[in-house]
């Protein structure tokens, strides 16, 4: 009786996580065991707080990137968008003194830059990788240009700083939940709902799996792309705002460089296919957690940053290679099936 209800829960959990993400959970468990065998500091509440806080920025970008990659696109400019948003939001907060204005401004500039990406892809017919590689450079330049003299813009508003380092539910020895992490959870839940239960999300899967067939089924690819890149841009902008709040300054570059690599790695680790049409928010978020624990663990074990860079690069190759290998295996199975079935 109890085991049956437990099974029901387990199978429901498996469905939610996705069977293809079980390996991710296993990898996470192995990683935790490996790190905690070397240092007991991993499970300290302060460290867990740090991990949660560090996840927020990459997690927000990875949520948007999931939409982009599932639609068979790519956005390399997300880090630069976050940089622009960071500067813009710092200027608004210091100039007007309104926190809400800074938050809205950062998100809005992100959405606008995302629309620029989509417009380049749609109307100039530039491939997504090349288009966003170009805007990665251009947007970073813009971030430096709008920052007075190209220097970081200091923000001293204490309310605004809460977005980066604030916490709630703090009591006794428990350090509380970082506000930034709570924002990520909120965004992830919303993104999960959008991807799984809305016309927009379903259409992203369709267009990513086969754009020609999606168009013939009535999906307007250009309009979809405008929305997808705008959302990815807006979430990158939000990530930029959080970076600003944490560092108390609008940073054109520092803190947002290299975010594209981590976000893209997370999405592919989370089960997305290079060819599009597959991927999930749950998978991407699990992968973000895995990456956060990995880099935290390497810090705890005193592994130098340079090794970490190499490890991150390897991880991206590994993530995509696993996806390609899965596809190849599925195709081989299919070929065998037809060979057996068709006489």
């Amino acid at each position: 009786m109890t085991t049956r209800s437990k099974d029901g829960f387990l199978s429901r959990l498996t469905r939610f996580v996705g069977a293809e993400n079980l390996s991710l959970i296993i990898a996470l468990i192995l990683l935790v065991l490996a790190v905690s065998s070397q240092t007991e500091f991993l499970f300290s509440s302060r460290n867990l707080f740090n991990i949660a806080q560090n996840m927020a920025v990459v997690g927000l970008i990875a949520a948007g990137m999931t939409l982009v990659i599932v639609s068979n696109g790519l956005d390399i400019s997300v880090g630069s968008i976050a940089g622009c948003a960071s500067v813009v939001c710092a200027l608004i907060v210091t100039g007007s003194g309104t926190v809400a204005g800074g938050l809205a401004g950062g998100i809005a500039i992100g959405a606008v830059l995302g629309l620029v990406n989509a417009a380049i892809i749609n109307y100039l017919r530039v491939n997504a990788v090349v288009a966003t590689l170009a805007t990665m450079s251009a947007f970073r330049g813009i971030a430096f240009l709008i920052a007075p003299e190209g220097r970081p813009v200091g923000v001293l508003d204490p309310t605004f700083a809460l977005l980066g380092s604030g916490r709630f539910l703090q009591f006794g020895g428990f350090p509380g939940v970082p506000i930034a992490f709570a924002i990520l959870v909120g965004v992830a839940v919303l993104a999960y709902f959008v991807m799984s239960s809305t016309v927009f999300g379903r259409s992203i899967y369709s267009m990513g799996g086969n754009p020609a067939a999606a168009r013939l089924a009535g999906i307007n690819l250009n309009r979809m792309r405008l929305w997808i890149y705008a959302i990815s841009g807006a979430l990158s902008g939000l990530a930029g705002v959080i970076v600003t709040a944490r560092t108390s300054s609008g940073q054109p570059a520092s803190g947002t460089q290299g975010l594209e690599l981590e976000a893209i790695t997370a999405v592919f680790l989370g089960g997305a296919l290079l060819a599009g049409g597959k991927g999930s928010i749950v998978g991407s978020m699990l992968a973000v957690l895995l990456l956060a624990v990995l880099s935290n663990g390497m810090n705890l074990l005193g592994i130098p940053t340079f090794y970490q860079l190499v490890a991150k690069g390897l991880l991206l190759v590994l993530a995509v290679a696993i996806g390609q290998w899965r596809m190849a295996m599925a195709e081989r199975r299919q070929a065998k099936l037809t060979a057996a079935g068709g006489a």
């Binding site: 899967y205 369709s206 799996g209 086969n210 020609a212 067939a213 999606a214 013939l216 296919l273 060819a275 049409g277 597959k278």
Partner: peptide, 9 residues
């Protein structure tokens, strides 16, 4: 396969 279906869905 090219225009009708999304094979991975």
């Amino acid at each position: 396969k090219a225009e009708g279906l999304i094979l991975v869905r």
